[in-house]
Amino acid sequence: MTDQPENQLRDALQGAIASNDVILFMKGTPEQPMCGFSARTCAALEATETEFAAVDVLADPRIRQELSSLSNWPTIPQLFVHGELVGGADIVGQMYESGELAAVLGAPAATGGNPLPDAAEPGSAPPLQIENRLG
């Protein structure tokens, strides 16, 4: 069957979402985001000092297609916490500023009201990386 590789990809995506408490699907990597929306989302996560897994959807165009069909969400980035879609860059940014993001993440810095820091600020702890094994 021709759809078997797609099912495998879907299984791999579902597995990655299920096995990582916090996982971000993004364009590029946290060290080198390839899109402003992905960069902003990483910056918000890093500001909460939460470790997160990151998957670069640019590694394989099928990832994005399968992910969007799985999540019913058309755009990248997509943040999942405990298996649930939290949202894209706009929602994550809004939740960061309200303090809700830190609460959802169970992060210690649940202060809120902070402006979003500039993207790609050096010096913060490097996030956990998982390999792209989704191809």
């Binding site: 969400w73 755009t75 879609l85 949202g87 706009d90 809004q94």
Partner: peptide, 27 residues
């Protein structure tokens, strides 16, 4: 918020977001 954004995204056809509408920053 996810459901609110989905309502807006659903207005635009398959491929339009990320295509002719390259980016839609939404509140």
């Amino acid at each position: 918020l996810v459901e609110q954004h989905r309502l807006v995204y659903a207005i635009f056809g398959e491929g339009e977001l990320g295509g002719s509408i390259h980016a839609l920053a939404l509140t």
